[in-house]
Simulated scan of single mutants.
Amino acid sequence: MTCVSVIVPLYNKAAFIRRTLDSILAQTMPDLEVVVVDDGSTDGGAAIVDGVDDGRIRLVHQKNQGPGAARNRGLEMAHGDYVAFLDADDEWLPDFLAVTLQHLKQRPDCALCLTGQYRGENRSDWGKTLMALGLTSGQWRLPTELSRDQHKPNLDVLHSGAIVCDRNVIHRFGGFYDKDRCTYGEDIYLWLQVVLNYPIYRDLRPLMWYHTEASDLAVWNQVRPPWPMLLEPEPIRRRCPQPYRPILENILNTYAAIAAYRATTVEDLATANRLFEAFPDARQEMFQDWRKRVDYLIANVPNLRRTLKGFKGDRSQRQS
């Protein structure tokens, strides 16, 4: 059996897919297969994949259903004991698979291994950022108690392109969230369930390169929708071991507070209030920052935010 199956969801990334495939085929651990799932691309990316002369690559096509569905289709075709996922605009450093697989084979109780990453054209080392927030390399198990400011950093590190996971573990949780062509948070829906149930290994050295400059999700000023784990949390709750249920609720409330504030900034009070209703502690958590409380109150008054913006703009013009 092949040691590792690499799954690449492809959607309109013709400009980058060859670079991604080259980084996979250049791995120092050659016992791999590559399953590229063309998710209804219209830019000729699939033809580029077809033109790569390497028997380890398989290309399959489907109608556009989103990255979760594309990864799940690849999982159905995977033969490896382990699976890894690399988006069609990112790349691995040559030792990524060799290092992660060595960690996993030395620690069979760990469900997955993740690494640090470079980010953007300037190759900033995101691992250093995470270490400054208190994260460390080594075997790690989600504690039953974790301060709220540590919830998001310890989940943000679970970047799909920097993970190698036991294939059976992924199947246990049904793969990635794939409803309604979800394009945001479909991966953390899976990884949260994994860390609630298993220890993992973290090697924060940068062994993959997340090309934020090429990513549709890396437009930092866009307002993203709520994470699927907030919209459909019950499967996660059912699969959560009893000792971890309190921290799961804390994590959900933390993410609900973030999503509610994002909605507030675009005056989407319907979404914010639905999140507060579903996760009652999120309101208090968001309001711990007085500026967010003011933003929420302003957004609740029709047209007041636009009036204040206009007043601020007029005042700036008068001062100039």
Rank of each mutant, 00 (worst) to 15 (best):
R283F: 06
T2L: 12
Q317N: 13
Q102A: 15
A47I: 13
V164M: 09
P143G: 01
S215L: 00
C240A: 13
I7S: 10
V157Y: 01
R141C: 11
D281C: 06
T28Q: 12
L196E: 08
F173G: 06
L75H: 05
L59E: 08
R224Y: 08
D180M: 02
H103K: 14
I258H: 11
W191V: 03
P108A: 02
T2H: 06
C113Q: 07
N64S: 14
G66E: 07
N300F: 01
K13F: 00
L252C: 02
N253H: 13
V36E: 06
R305I: 03
I48D: 12
M208L: 11
P9C: 07
L32E: 01
H211W: 01
G127A: 03
G116V: 07
K105V: 09
W140S: 08
H171M: 13
N168Y: 04
Y198C: 09
W92T: 06
M229E: 04
R238N: 01
F311V: 12
G68W: 08
W126G: 00
Q106T: 12
D22E: 13
K292R: 14
S316C: 11
N12H: 04
N64R: 14
I236R: 02
R71A: 03
L21A: 05
Y177S: 11
D109F: 03
D81E: 15
R148W: 09
L133K: 15
K312H: 12
R202G: 00
K152Y: 08
A84H: 03
P302E: 02
G120I: 08
V8D: 11
N154I: 00
P302N: 01
F176W: 13
H171N: 13
E91V: 06
L130K: 04
P9G: 05
R73Y: 05
V194D: 07
T144E: 15
Q62H: 09
W140R: 02
E234Q: 15
T264D: 07
A69R: 05
E249S: 07
G120P: 05
L25Y: 02
H171Y: 09
A26I: 05
N253R: 11
Q242A: 14
N221E: 13
I7P: 09
P30I: 00
Y255W: 12
S137Y: 02
D39R: 04
V35F: 05
V52N: 09
C113K: 08
E234G: 00
P246V: 04
P108F: 00
A257W: 05
L112G: 04
L308D: 07
L59P: 11
I170W: 01
C113I: 03
R73Q: 13
P241M: 04
P246S: 12
Q242V: 15
R18I: 09
C110Y: 04
A132E: 10
I17W: 01
L192H: 06
T28L: 09
L146Q: 03
Y11K: 14
Y118L: 15
H171W: 12
P108K: 06
E232P: 00
D87N: 11
A111Y: 05
K179E: 15
L308T: 04
C110F: 10
W191A: 02
L275P: 01
D216A: 15
V294E: 06
W220R: 15
F287Q: 11
Y201M: 10
S41P: 05
L248V: 03
T129W: 10
R148D: 15
G45V: 07
P225Q: 01
E249N: 13
